[in-house]
Simulated scan of single mutants.
Amino acid sequence: MSGYRERAAAGLDCVWERSSDVATSGRVVPDGRTDIVFTRGGGLVVAGPDTTGHVTALGPGEVFGVRFGPGVGPSALGVPAHVLRDLRVPLAELWDGVAELEEALAVAHDPCAVLADAARRRLRATPPDPVTGAIAGAAGTPVAALADDLGLSTRHLHRRSLDAFGYGPKTLHRVLRFDRAVKLAWAGVPFADIAHRTGYADQAHLSREVKDLAGVPLGQLIRP
Results as ranks from 00 to 15, higher is better:
C14P: 01
K211R: 10
S20D: 14
H196K: 14
A125L: 09
G133C: 09
L84R: 04
V15M: 07
R67F: 05
L152Q: 05
D193R: 04
S25Y: 04
R33S: 06
A195G: 00
G43A: 08
D179R: 10
D149H: 06
F38C: 12
R33L: 08
G166D: 05
H109W: 05
V216I: 06
D117N: 14
A118K: 03
H82F: 08
A116E: 03
D13H: 08
A81V: 04
P30M: 11
P80F: 13
L12Y: 01
D110K: 09
G48N: 11
A139H: 00
L12Q: 03
T132G: 07
P217L: 08
G32E: 08
D202T: 04
D117T: 15
A185N: 01
R67H: 07
T39R: 07
P217H: 10
L213H: 02
E93R: 08
L146R: 01
V46S: 10
R160Q: 13
A138P: 00
E100K: 11
M1K: 10
V182R: 03
A139R: 01
E6K: 12
A10W: 12
S75A: 05
F64T: 15
A164D: 02
F64S: 08
I222F: 04
V89L: 07
L172F: 00
H205N: 11
